[in-house]
């Protein structure tokens, strides 16, 4: 027993630390998941393919938030704003400038990276609840900015923009929906691999050092300001790509699709999937897509209440979200193997 322990300051950390190893899946499990994602669309109807595409897109957006929060310990209730910027970038480029849909995505990503990096500057000075506040304000302000008269020529104002759905290239014999799904899948896997590597890299270690103890990190020579804004930028960039994909898939952008409700959904997806556990993003995404559908099926306007109640249940009963189930499953498998 040392005096150091007696003196421990009992202040709650912003985010509970997640060990780096625990942030990803083993290679065997990954393979099974990828196989499933490849095969299932061949067997189901177009509408389900559409939903699976959305699953991947929201999965990306949740992943982006996860990098920010689980990785660097910063909050954001404003992801819907970056999602909106990405969506509008793709839509405007495609409809007004005839840019190929695939090319709009990197542009959306870069633009959002810039926007996130810039927003990260003031966010640097803020932590915890203040950051949540600033991003909350960002999310509520975004739809109004999009409705602005100045930009109406491009954004279509309140009406929004209709986006044309791309055909499968090279005369491939598949429906538009199915093509878009595989296209999204490729983008998603690429970004997922990038994210995993990012978190394993020097930058990733810097993020986590900041998350666990900012002051100690800066004392070790981590450029806290740079890495915090970088985390914001990367997160916003990925969210922007997701937004662009979303615009193409839904074929429509309008200010009121990107309200605080979307930001809350993404936040919820992260908590449900497990903060800091990247594979959980897809589980969180499934949650935010299917739960409202089921709830609205029971009664209109019920989805908010169901969301809220489930969110409370998650934070009380399984504070680590889906990761907790994964850990339990992992331990069980380990036990079975040993016997």
């Amino acid at each position: 027993m040392s005096a150091a322990i007696e003196d421990v300051v009992t202040e709650a950390p912003a985010v509970e630390a997640v060990p780096k190893r625990a942030m990803t899946l083993g290679s065997g499990t990954s393979l099974v998941v990828v196989l499933l994602l490849l095969v299932v669309p061949l067997l189901v109807k177009n509408f389900i393919i559409f939903q699976m595409t959305m699953l991947l897109i929201y999965g990306l957006a949740v992943l982006a938030l996860n990098i920010l929060t689980g990785g660097s310990g910063q909050f954001s209730l404003g992801q819907s704003a970056f999602y909106a910027i990405g969506a509008y970038t793709s839509a405007i480029l495609m409809e007004h400038f005839d840019v190929n849909y695939a090319l709009t995505l990197p542009i959306a990503g870069v633009l959002c990276f810039g926007a996130g990096f810039l927003f990260g500057q003031p966010a640097l000075r803020l932590s915890g609840v203040y950051l949540a506040l600033a991003t909350f304000a960002l999310a509520t302000a975004m739809p109004q900015l999009l409705k602005l008269g100045y930009f109406e020529k491009w954004t279509g104002g309140v009406q929004g923009l209709v986006v044309t759905k791309p055909d499968a290239p090279f005369g491939l014999p598949m429906s538009q929906d199915m093509w878009l799904y595989y296209f999204t899948l490729v983008v998603t896997i690429a970004i997922y691999v990038f994210s995993v590597n990012l978190l394993r890299s020097r930058s990733g270690r810097a993020f986590m050092a900041i998350r666990d103890n900012e002051i100690a990190a800066s004392a070790m020579g981590v450029d806290v300001a740079l890495y915090k804004t970088l985390a914001f930028g990367v997160s916003a960039g990925i969210t922007g790509v997701a937004g662009g994909l979303g615009a193409i898939t839904v074929q429509f952008v309008a200010p009121d699709s990107y309200t605080i409700t979307l930001a809350i959904s993404l936040f919820l997806g992260m908590v449900v999937g497990g903060v800091g556990w990247l594979p959980g993003s897809i589980i969180g995404s499934a949650f935010i897509i299917f739960v409202p559908n089921i709830a609205e099926g029971i009664s209109k306007g019920l989805s908010g209440a169901v969301f809220g109640v489930l969110l409370f249940l998650v934070i009380y009963l399984v504070p680590h979200g889906a990761r907790q189930f994964a850990m339990v499953a992992h331990n069980l498998i380990g036990k079975v193997r040993r016997n």
């Binding site: 509970e16 609840v129 908590v271 969301f307 809220g308 109640v309 934070i315 504070p319």
Partner: peptide
Amino acid sequence: KAPILTNVAGFIA
């Protein structure tokens, strides 16, 4: 005693 994130999640809920 939970982390800030959990509390924010609670408010959102």
